[in-house]
Simulated scan of single mutants.
Amino acid sequence: MASELVLLTGATGLIGFRVLVFCLRKGYRVRVVLRDLAARARILRTPSIQNLDTETNLTFVEIPDLSIPTAFDDALRDVDKVIHIAAPIASANPSSIGADLATHYLKPTTDAALHLLSSAQAHHTVKRIILTNSLAALIDYVTDTDETIHTESTRVTNIQQPPYRSPFEAYMAAKISTLNLTEQWAESEKPAFDLVHMAPGHVFGPNEPVTNPKELLQTGTNRMILAPVMGKAYPKEAGVTVHLDDVAEAHVRALNPSTPGNRLYILSSGGVMGTKLDDCFEIVARNFPEHVGKTLLNNGSLPSFVFKVDASESARTLGIDFIPYEQQVRDTVGYYLECVQRQPSSTPSD
């Protein structure tokens, strides 16, 4: 009997690539959606992929624009499960995304998810769709207080409207809107497949497709740790974090029909009170003393605030014991140092 076929978007990103590796390790066949097929070279040259038998289990399909109504029609043929991760992320360089933040974040994110669901409804092989969201989808800027504890059943009714003052405001609105609209769609359309929503906190772990140290400092959520460890000041962030491997494992476990569907799972370590992000400096000093003051200045700043989330029910249901912040930092910084050591002449300073 052939293994199930999973359609995966976002495989060139931090989360998506690791989900791809975990799916292949579990024996799933994976059809990866790329906006440009040239990007498959970056995936195929990684050690994790080269160590797997991917000749028959890994294929690629090109969809240049995920937000058009018919984008997924052909790609979904014979697909059993879908993991949709691709979406605009909160950029470290707002000038690179233009002035219209709503156009960059809100419309592409919601359109891609809704068009995917509509296309899947016409493909009777699809049994489950996993939509990767974010804890940002649970933030209500009107009603939240310092005492609000966010759970799997938390839903936001107040969504900030454009124009947005920052990429994060637009990103948050896109995540809330996508969760709300896809749940409303499922309630209205009652599809044959079920939906699973993943809501991770800040995701940390080795970003294997990226090997350039300077790019690592500018790409994805890992920059939140790496920039301060390199001596930079980082803006205050919520102390909700999760290891990349836990996020990938949660997605793969959610492919199993024994994992309950039509619900949201919170992925966050550290308990309700979360993590004190600037503990990263002590963790680095203890684990990489020979690099402190040299490759790692370890003297930046990373202030955090408490954003209360209770992930205990998600952890129980998924059977995951979340990897602690200590290892999140150790693995992220350790990978960065590996990349620096491979290019000893290019220790970045910016």
Score class of each variant (00 low, 15 high):
residue 83 I to W: 04
residue 30 V to K: 00
residue 74 D to N: 13
residue 21 V to K: 00
residue 30 V to L: 02
residue 21 V to I: 11
residue 28 Y to M: 05
residue 62 E to K: 10
residue 47 P to Q: 03
residue 71 A to I: 03
residue 66 L to A: 10
residue 84 H to I: 11
residue 84 H to Q: 10
residue 64 P to M: 10
residue 82 V to K: 04
residue 19 V to A: 09
residue 18 R to V: 05
residue 76 L to E: 06
residue 39 A to G: 12
residue 59 T to I: 10
residue 16 G to K: 03
residue 67 S to N: 14
residue 16 G to T: 12
residue 62 E to P: 10
residue 9 T to W: 01
residue 30 V to W: 00
residue 33 V to L: 06
residue 80 D to P: 13
residue 49 I to N: 10
residue 53 D to L: 12
residue 52 L to G: 11
residue 52 L to S: 06
residue 68 I to R: 11
residue 57 N to E: 05
residue 54 T to H: 11
residue 36 D to M: 04
residue 37 L to I: 14
residue 55 E to I: 15
residue 76 L to M: 12
residue 59 T to Y: 01
residue 59 T to L: 08
residue 15 I to T: 14
residue 34 L to W: 02
residue 22 F to A: 13
residue 68 I to F: 05
residue 50 Q to T: 11
residue 71 A to N: 04
residue 75 A to R: 08
residue 57 N to V: 08
residue 42 R to S: 13
residue 25 R to W: 00
residue 57 N to Y: 05
residue 51 N to A: 15
residue 86 A to R: 02
residue 21 V to N: 03
residue 62 E to L: 08
residue 85 I to E: 03
residue 39 A to Q: 12
residue 48 S to F: 09
residue 37 L to P: 06
residue 23 C to Y: 02
residue 60 F to H: 09
residue 29 R to G: 11
residue 56 T to Y: 12
residue 45 R to V: 13
residue 75 A to I: 11
residue 85 I to S: 03
residue 62 E to V: 14
residue 49 I to S: 13
residue 6 V to Y: 02
residue 15 I to D: 08
residue 88 P to N: 06
residue 22 F to C: 09
residue 33 V to E: 02
residue 6 V to D: 00
residue 85 I to K: 00
residue 82 V to Y: 03
residue 19 V to Y: 01
residue 75 A to D: 07
residue 45 R to L: 07
residue 74 D to E: 14
residue 56 T to D: 14
residue 52 L to P: 09
residue 64 P to T: 13
residue 69 P to D: 10
residue 75 A to Y: 04
residue 75 A to T: 11
residue 48 S to Q: 13
residue 38 A to W: 02
residue 40 R to Y: 01
residue 20 L to G: 11
residue 27 G to E: 01
